[in-house]
Design a protein around this nucleic acid. Structure first.
Lengths: 105, 105
DNA sequence: GCATAATACCTCGTGATATGATGTATTTCA
DNA sequence: TGAAATACATCATATCACGAGGTATTATGC
């Protein structure tokens, strides 16, 4: 999938990836890989953005001397997913506009 | 629809708007309005981009002293729409990932 | 034992691009 | 006569995905 298409989808995907269970950077990338690929640089940009927007919270855990940051979705984050579902309806209409035959009257 | 979501869709929408019948800037905006709103600044940016990518051709027509530029889709443009349909399948899978309940095993 | 890969975090610079603001010129209509 | 609609255009700005590069630890293969 190209970069333009990803915009508007990636944020929501990351929220979805931590929705049911707190997760951390490396795992999020692996979990999303079958559906969409994103670089670490992209993910950390997104996580920062979502944290600044109060859509997730962070909790640092030291495990065997290795740092791990767990991300937890907030109410605002869950709301964002719900809003996306509404927006999706518009996207589907747009898809129909793109694929329908004979626009002219 | 937010700006991020529009990216990756707008180019294709403009191509779809001229797919069956040549059209010009102002009309394209009006035709797309029920489905997606875009400013003139955005449209002319897109038209320039699509022309540079050989996805459409331009033909200037003087009508009652008023300039009108008609845009015509090329084979490359039609191919782009077809490619988008494939990409759409990935987007739908992504939507399922976002909306499914219980990601954890 | 040692190199390579995997895990796990991070920053910086760049390129692509949607949009508001702004400008030009004509026609239509109240 | 003046406002709105038609129709084009440019520029500056903000957002954002990503490649390139960096640090440190643990696991794996030879």
């Amino acid at each position: 999938m190209n970069a333009q298409m990803k915009r508007g989808l990636l944020d929501i995907c990351v929220l979805a990836a931590i929705k049911d269970e707190d997760s951390y950077g490396y795992k999020i990338i692996k979990d999303m890989k079958p559906y969409i690929e994103l670089s670490e640089a992209t993910l950390y940009t997104i996580l920062k953005r979502l944290e600044a927007a109060d859509q997730l919270t962070v909790r640092s855990i030291e495990q065997d001397g290795r740092l791990r940051k767990y991300y937890h979705i907030t109410g605002t984050g869950l709301k964002r997913i719900e809003e996306f579902k509404d927006e999706w309806k518009e996207v589907v209409l747009l898809y129909q506009f793109i694929t329908k035959e004979g626009h002219h009257e």
